[in-house]
Design a binder for these strands. Structure first.
Lengths: 210, 210
DNA sequence: TAGATTGTTAATCGATTAACAATC
DNA sequence: TAGATTGTTAATCGATTAACAATC
């Protein structure tokens, strides 16, 4: 698999490709052309071929793409086969919602533990995920190297927690606090889910014209 | 306030401007230059001046921008002063998390009601927000024109619910189901919060190099 | 084989950056 | 006033689209 410099725009489209290919696969579609896929995804055929060409040659002239195998290729590109692991920091409503409802496994992740400060929660399990005291974070991460820390703690604890995750060497932080994390001089990647920004964007879009 | 064709890239930066200006304001900073703001936000000074010029002239030569008044301008641009209202569809973990923890008011929204199918929830309140049966959605929306429907229902109910919201004339749908909603021939705007896409992006970023 | 569709190179379009006159 | 910094126009860069030879 060749890796050129892949632009951010392309990277952000990859999960969408994966999602659409999964849909197609489940609908029993076996092959698809770039133009048909483009139609479904609201992209041009050119763009799809251009995007995919960053990673290899997955199609066949005169035929198109095999849905199942392209889906597998995209999964591979996305790192879904790397057996990533995740832990959740903060088991409030949002943390709990993610543990109970979000399918980490569908993204190739295994959710191995959660951490909280609330004594009432510690020692219990949510959907089979054990909840440990935050003090044990470093020890846990030492014994269980972890790909991603999911940050669902209150804002006041966010930067501190992020720091500790970085120090312990997680590869990524999935940030649900509405803060800009200040993670410097590390190669830990931060992916933000800024609810507030998203709502404000929607606010703008429905407020058009003064 | 002039409105040119504002690119999507610019729109997505507006909430970030607002967030940073709020931070600055809270820190007591009264004025800031495009270059200083750029430094803080990791943008070029040019870009900031270019972005803002889509909406008007908010700065002063030799001085820069007044933080408080620029913040107000951005709030205005984002439609935060329009007294928008929102309702939540689906009071599961995620819906509840949003009701209890998300500050709709900080985005200029008033959260007026929630809807669910669970008889045990109906008639109760969560953080002061009343929960009504979904059957009453249309009647409610008729009597209480609402800006945005927040979609936190199970995937199976998502498209149906979206359709009903559109039919009832909401201006926007804030979509937390991991589905591509099929909302056609309407001017209802859909803003997606795709957790799954976000996690896969992170997966890609931490999986670099084969 | 003929038709379809790829991967890729070239052309276009749009967004970001640089430069600078205007002016506080 | 002199220095700083804007808003805007021009230059550059990057991403999207179009075109087409290669080939299944």
């Amino acid at each position: 698999m060749k890796r050129q410099k892949v632009s951010n725009a392309v990277i952000r489209r990859l999960p969408r490709y994966y999602r659409h290919l999964t849909d197609l696969s489940q609908t029993g579609v076996q092959r698809i052309s770039s133009s048909a896929l483009g139609m479904a995804m609201n992209l041009t055929a050119s763009q799809i071929r251009q995007d995919l060409s960053c990673f290899g040659e997955f199609g066949q002239q005169g035929y198109g793409y095999n849905v199942e195998s392209l889906r597998n290729e995209v999964a591979e590109i996305l790192g879904m086969t790397r057996a990533h692991t995740a832990i959740i920091l903060g088991v409030g409503n949002l943390g709990r919602a993610l543990i109970e409802n979000f399918h980490f496994d569908r993204g190739g992740f295994r959710l191995t533990a959660a951490f909280d400060v609330n004594p009432a929660l510690i020692g219990t399990q949510v959907s089979g995920v054990p909840i440990y005291p935050v003090e044990e974070l470093e020890v846990y991460l030492k014994e269980n190297p972890t790909s991603v820390g999911v940050l669902t703690v209150p804002q006041s604890a966010a930067n501190d927690m992020a720091q500790r995750l970085v120090q312990s060497g997680v590869k990524g932080i999935w940030n649900f606090t509405n803060l800009e994390l200040h993670v410097e001089d590390s190669n830990t990647v931060v992916e933000d889910v800024h609810f507030a920004d998203s709502l404000l964007t929607l606010s703008y879009l429905i407020s058009e014209a003064p």
